[in-house]
Amino acid sequence: MMGKVIEEEKRQLSDYIKHYRPKQILRDRIMESIIFLGGLSAVIFTIGIFLFVIKEAWPFLSSRFSLMEFLTNIEWYPVSNVSVRYGAKALFVGTAAVTIGSMVLAIPVGIGTAIFISEFCGPKFKEVAKILIELLASIPSVVWGFIAVMVMNPFIINVLHEPVGLNVFNASIILALMSIPMIVSIGEDALRSVPDTYREAAESLGATRLEVVIRVIIPAAKNGLIAAILLGVGRAVGETMAVLMATGHSVAIPDSIFSPVRTLTATVAAEMGEAPKGSEHYQTLFTIGLSLLLITFSINFISDILLRKSWKRK
């Protein structure tokens, strides 16, 4: 009796394998290879973009380019009746100025908000705040540019009585608002990944909530928080449209936070259209693109390493 049942089950199983397994295996194989191709394409695209930018910049890099001129000369005359000069110092300084300015504003606000959302506020408010912050992240950069020109510009001139409204200060505020959502959401993830046992242990030793956060949570989530900041920096360095509109687009070393500047990204965006393909000017713009790529790549690389470290702990 028993043997018969087992025989029957065996038969059913082998039928099942005969009929269904090959299909399943095939489906799995197909899905697997699609996902593999997806993953592979990301790698190929990254390498491809690097190679493309280097290829376009190479004729300039291998002939006229001098790192000294590029980094230390402020004379950016890509089109000139006298002599063309490609000194990008002012552009590097411009990018650095708006990045530092925006981070001075964005880091305290962003990290502060992340700590508040993750450690202090109630669940209902948390939901609302997260949705609103994500909404802030979805505003297109050209809209930020409009705010810079239409709202911030008259404000700076009429209320602060500065000579120019489009300047480092204006761009820093706009960039800070753009990178805060990123800092908040990644920072909050990092704080949340600190195990609750840490909090419980600290509280059982008699620490107040503030002490828990400052002495335990922040040190534990340090790497993740730094990664959040670095990704915000990367965003600020790479942003183009909003800074093109907000900085005043002026090749000069700023002497105050109310001086107009020009950034690397804005220069590429504004001049790419006029530079004939393959010309020296075009190659120079690709050289700027390559420097930007190297800057953001190294920032992302560092933050990636830090994020990995913070996950490992968990």
Partner: peptide
Amino acid sequence: LGSMDLNGSKESIDLVQNTPCA
């Protein structure tokens, strides 16, 4: 160098009409 290099005629007019120094 150091001028504000704008993209269009309309933009330069808008900027100057808001900027007494310009």
